[in-house]
Design a protein around this nucleic acid. Structure first.
Lengths: 177, 177, 177, 177
DNA sequence: GATGAATGAGGATTCATTCAT
DNA sequence: GATGAATGAATCCTCATTCAT
């Protein structure tokens, strides 16, 4: 009975999304052909279309996941500032290259796809809410902006000194108190 | 002896780049077809290809110009901080939507096109040099990051309070002294 | 010893053909995917392929059945003309929409599939034989043509007055005697 | 200046429609791939899409033309019955194979494409109007039906005796007066 | 110089069919 | 027997680019 377990379905979906994320991070959404994803996933074209109605939907799923990952577990930390600085370190680190690339792709899509723009905006809004008590909106926005800018700069410059960057941010913010 | 004046050539180039920038800002690099640029420019496909060897080159030219515009006349100001805050206001303002869209497109291209990545990196490096005397590198990077992040957030949220944002930045930085 | 009764097999076949006929009448042979038939039949793809080697064969079976139904019990009637006029009424009636649609699909297939062409031709030839004694071939062909044309026209025009049509035919033919 | 004459455009369109009609008459609308039409026309895929937005539109154009051709110059004849019998001879003749095939294809499409159904219905209605004075609607419908049925039967049986068919029709109708 | 008709490789997607379970 | 997940060739269509005029 090829009716397959729930887990199998989830794994397949993962397999596809992973392949897609890899391709997208390497070549961007629009320079990645479905054929490449097919090859990278090791599955067939037809099967992929059983999981995603179209390329656009795969992009959306990838972006959704990206935002979900990003917004995880901030605000709940005992020392929010430390948690935030940790996030900076993470996004600036060498392991985050793929995440950075996906992020930049996602941002570019906000220009023409309302649903992706909504996700991006919502990503910021969630931070505003999470930290709403600790600081005024404008300040949180600045912190988010710093995160975003670091993502970009770290992507462009492998030799960027993330620690120094984080330290500078820490100083700037701590002094404020 | 050129049959057409230098000026004519420059104007034509402008005309093409303007059309392209308009399309790109609206739909992104990859959702814009050459045919759309042809139509928007009012010129013919053949002519456009006399000015740019291909679409890729047009993208490059657009991105180049974007970075040139951006890096203009900072660092030379009498009060660098004021000048910087002015830049924030400018990029956050409602007139800058097109510039923001182009910027986000350009950033996405850094993923797969080394020349565009080089331009992006160079854009940051220029700021590092321009302000090299006034502050440590890490701090300048943070300021640049704030600029970049504001660009994104202003693009996603029309109701973002740019003034409050700028004020928060001003406070953060001034306190430092 | 078959594990499943002959009757079961026949019922299954019926189930499949009914589903297929429904889809085909609605969307035509070529706009109907096997997947739709699978869904409409409530069976599985694999099972359907145990009953029919391929889509083409299902089409053939449907067309065969269509012709069989059509040629039933003419010529044997006590008053052939009345029987014929009854057939006209039947094919023109509102209940016959599905049959009409299938007929038109079948006719289109005669263009490229010799076996279906053969069935169509045979359908006419059977009438020629059945009425062979009552009238010359050419006249029978005309009567068949009228049937065919009515099928088309009734399909295109819900408000067609079938009774008037049949009356006109009756007059035309009766007068002849 | 490759801005091309009106005549050129018309010829190109003809060239495409002729190629398409040839393919369609041979293999049916849905067994004909665009690639076949491309090859048969001697043009390129891209060019064909400058003339027709899609395959569906080409089918529609072909069907439109088919109906236009068919409805030409009846009703205006001095002796309508003779003109009609001439039409029967024409559609039954060996030169009309392509027209017959296209007709059958068009009829099959009436099932799923309202615009094609509308054309078919309109084709009949035009005859009703053209002969409106000469005979009651039902009778004209019968004559049209005979035409349609002859088209089918002639398509299926090369040896069909068109003359005898036409003679039988003539007798049937003349006797009526 | 300037035009835009023409090209054709490449892209996303569908769908008849198979086969491991 | 029965299932439906999986396949991949084939389809329609787009679009960057060229070149005859």
């Amino acid at each position: 009975m090829p009716k397959v377990s729930e887990e199998h379905l989830t794994n397949r979906r993962r397999q596809i999304l992973d392949a897609a994320a890899g391709c997208f991070a390497r070549n961007g959404f629009h320079r990645t052909s479905m054929q490449e994803i097919v090859k990278e996933s090791g599955l067939s074209a037809g099967l992929i279309y059983r999981y995603f109605p179209g390329k656009e939907d795969m992009i959306l799923a990838i972006v959704e996941e990206w935002h979900t990952t990003r917004s995880a577990g901030l605000g709940t930390a005992s020392d929010p500032l430390d948690a935030y600085l940790g996030l900076l370190r993470a996004i600036g680190g060498p392991d985050a290259a793929r995440q950075r690339n996906l992020g930049m792709q996602a941002w570019a899509e906000t220009v023409r796809e309302p649903r992706i723009r909504a996700l991006a905006r919502q990503g910021v809004d969630e931070q505003l809410e999470a930290f709403g008590n600790a600081a005024p909106e404008a300040l949180i926005r600045v912190l988010v902006a710093i995160y975003q800018g670091l993502l970009l700069q770290a992507s462009w410059d492998d030799s960027l000194d993330v620690e120094a960057f984080v330290a500078a941010v820490g100083e700037l913010v701590r002094r404020r108190r």
